[in-house]
Design a protein around this nucleic acid. Structure first.
Length: 419
DNA sequence: TCTGGGGTCCTAGGACCC
DNA sequence: TCTGGGGTCCTAGGACCC
């Protein structure tokens, strides 16, 4: 009740970044392309006005772009990440409650500010002056409504880049100008399903019964409805939680058939993913390898596969992860397909300093009994809390024995080695 | 301690977001 | 020749374990 939350969103972020370093792009249509210069992933307002859409294939529209004088840039994520950090630092000067939501967006808690709208205008001016990146600010009582306000700020030429929706009347006016698919959380699939129930616009969604929405859809959509009604369901998450997964995947510039070439690519991706993981101080004990053919080529035989590889000991060591990844690749690789993309997903991430290793007890592993003996010894030395399996094993009847044999437990691997 | 039901893991896919 | 990459959450069936 009565909360005030703002959403700051950088305008056409990647295109704005490119402009910052090439001022001559000012006022011209700019697009930024994906990996391999495949398709459009960012557009300046001028490019949007030309009808260029997200995902437009560069190779199909190249001639048109040249005719229109569209400035085309390959993406440079290092640059964007750096500029993003600068923007976020400025935002941090304007509130203690900051949630960095994505590379170009942040939610700000503005509880206790007497005049949120003026505060937002000052913020917007400051970001522009100190970073050169233009932003828009939407303010309302929930995150979902702040998204609505932000969209209104972007669309309304008289907003000055800031839109404040403090009450139901202003929220109703803003929602009335939007399509269902513009609402945060309503995607391509959900919109038609809602329309089939007569919920054809954002206002009808807001006025729907949350309980019925939950029955017919799920709790996620129920929260969206309640947030539209002004009941906060999504908290500001200030301490960005550790990543749960880290992924690195790339499309190849051309089809790849041989195992060795795939292995080479996967090795590079794994090395990169491991680097990212270490930078966050995390370690993993399970990876997933992914391999797929080109789905845009129906004339090619299609194949898609993933393979989960579990490590006995958790690690952040690149060489060990590469071994695991290649093991997984060997398991799913089939000759005779034209592969377009492969990747690696690091799962089950946990802080590396807490677990120099993770211990996985599996009935089919020969080292099991040795590890269990070691854990018993640890248990005796440190007491029950230190080794979870021993707690359940000793305290509970035979039924739980199944659990500790198949469940995964973590402990301090370094200590274990010394038992 | 027990023979089948519950728990977990894996794979696959769907939906959303940026 | 040529159509991105990185996330989160949820669901479901089959295999497997005791």
């Amino acid at each position: 009740m009565g909360g005030t939350v703002a959403l700051v969103d950088c305008n056409n972020f990647y295109a704005s970044c490119e402009r910052l370093f090439q001022p001559r792009l000012q006022g011209k249509p700019v697009v930024v392309l994906s990996n391999n210069d495949g398709c459009v992933i960012a557009r300046s307002n001028e490019a949007k006005a030309l009808g260029i859409v997200m995902g437009d294939a560069w190779h199909l529209r190249r001639a048109e772009f040249e005719r229109w004088g569209v400035q085309v840039r390959s993406s440079n994520y290092t640059l964007y990440g750096d500029l993003s950090a600068r923007v976020m630092r400025v935002l941090g000067d304007f509130t203690p409650d900051l949630e960095v939501y994505s590379i170009d967006e942040a939610f700000l808690g503005l509880d206790g500010f007497a005049d949120p709208e003026n505060h937002a205008r000052a913020l917007r001016e400051s970001v522009g002056r100190r970073t050169g990146i233009p932003v828009c600010v939407g303010i309302s009582t929930t995150k979902t409504l702040a998204k609505v306000a932000n969209r209104t700020a972007k669309k309304d030429p008289y907003s000055g880049g800031v839109c404040y929706l403090p009450d139901e009347a202003s929220q109703t006016a803003a929602l009335g100008k939007m399509e269902l698919g513009d609402v945060w959380g309503i995607g391509r699939r959900l919109a038609p399903r809602l329309a089939a129930l007569g919920i054809t616009c954002p206002l009808k969604l807001r006025d729907a019964d949350p309980t019925r929405i939950r029955e017919r859809f799920n709790v996620v959509l129920q929260r969206t409805v309640m947030e539209l009604q002004g009941t906060p369901c999504l908290d500001l998450e200030q301490d960005s939680p550790d990543s749960k997964t880290i992924c690195c995947s790339r499309s190849f510039g051309r089809a790849v058939e041989g195992f060795d070439e795939l292995a080479e690519a996967l090795t590079a991706y794994t090395s990169y993913a491991a680097q990212k993981m270490r930078a966050q101080g995390l370690a993993t004990a399970a990876v997933v390898v992914m391999l797929t053919t080109n789905r845009h080529k129906p004339e090619d035989a299609q194949y898609y596969a993933t393979r989960h590889v579990r490590l006995t000991i958790g690690t952040s060591d690149t060489a060990r992860l590469i071994r695991a990844a290649l093991w997984g690749l060997r398991g799913i690789y089939k000759q005779g397909f034209r592969y377009k993309k492969c990747g690696i997903l690091l799962l089950d991430l946990h802080p590396a300093q807490d677990v120099q290793g993770s211990l996985f007890l599996r009935p089919d592993r020969p080292e099991r009994s040795a590890l269990m003996q070691a854990m018993d010894a640890l248990n005796a030395r440190y007491g029950r809390d230190r080794v979870r399996y021993a707690c359940s094993g000793q305290d509970r009847p035979w039924k739980l024995r199944a659990e500790y044999l198949s469940q995964r437990y973590t402990t301090r691997w370094g200590e274990l080695l010394h038992v």
